[in-house]
């Protein structure tokens, strides 16, 4: 006997957001790092930043650090980065 059953996953919700427009150039732009606290994240991202400084004219402004990788970034820190950087390198890895 055929039957019908509901799918268990339901719809996806929440507000949609648009990504910021990509930068047309890195020259004279301000580059910051947001270290998410994972082991060696600072090492990896610092090397990336160094490579970008070497290859482009981007200006490195420094590294900030989240309290922990597992919780959202502090709002004040995010606001500070948004105000003082044009590009932020961040990420997560174990």
């Amino acid at each position: 006997m055929s039957i019908q059953v509901f799918a268990p996953d339901g719809a996806v919700g929440g507000e949609t957001r648009e990504l910021a427009a990509p930068l047309d150039t890195l020259a004279e732009r301000r580059l910051a790092i947001l270290d998410n606290g994972k082991p060696n994240a600072d090492v990896l991202m610092q090397r990336m930043a160094n490579a970008l400084v070497e290859r482009t004219a981007v200006q490195y402004t420094g590294m900030s650090r989240k309290q922990t990788a597992a919780t959202p970034c502090d709002a004040e820190l995010l606001a500070n980065l948004a105000q003082n950087a044009d590009l932020v390198i961040t990420g997560s890895a174990d």
Binding site: M1, I3, V5, F6, A7
Partner: peptide, 23 residues
């Protein structure tokens, strides 16, 4: 009747095996 976003699947039979395999 299903809600706006709820999907109804048709299964050939009501056996546990059919449901498990479809899922």
């Amino acid at each position: 009747v299903a809600g706006d976003s709820d999907e109804l699947l048709s299964l050939a039979d009501d056996t546990p095996e059919t449901l498990l395999e479809r899922f």
